[in-house]
């Protein structure tokens, strides 16, 4: 829960849609992985995979984020949907609100 609060409280000024990291910056999943200590190359220019040679750290991004933050994969999918489907100028606040819900006791 502390890690999720960390993510919520450290959101960058801009989040990109649909890609973990690119010239538009991170999407929420890329940002969550970065906060958790993943280096940028593992999440670079990818939409579905965390490219880490260690199978315990790499794999489908939804599963890696779920594992890392103790979330259910469907919660990660919802978080990503909120990110991807929000207009760019409202994305950060929409994601912050979604994180607020997740850090509410009893949500996870």
């Amino acid at each position: 829960m502390d890690r999720l609060r960390n993510v919520r409280d450290s959101l960058p000024p801009r989040l990109n849609a649909g890609i973990l990291m690119g010239d538009g910056g991170f999407c929420i999943l890329g940002w969550m992985l970065t906060v958790a200590g993943y280096h940028p190359i593992t999440v670079y220019n990818s939409t579905l995979f965390v490219n880490d040679p260690d199978p315990r750290r790499g794999g489908l991004v939804v599963e890696v984020v779920a594992r890392t933050y103790g979330l259910h994969p469907e919660q990660v999918v919802e978080l990503a949907r909120t990110n991807d489907e929000s207009p760019s100028n409202e994305r950060v606040s929409a994601v912050r609100h979604a994180l607020d819900v997740l850090v509410t006791p009893g949500a996870t």
């Binding site: 649909g18 690119g22 910056g25 939409t47 994969p73 999918v77 990110n83």
Partner: peptide, 21 residues
């Protein structure tokens, strides 16, 4: 554009549960 929007298309498939995880 140095910071274009990417197209969001990564969760268009079946729900995660359909894949048996």
């Amino acid at each position: 554009d140095p910071a274009p929007e990417y197209f969001a298309g990564r969760y268009l498939g079946p729900s995660h549960g359909d894949l048996g995880s």
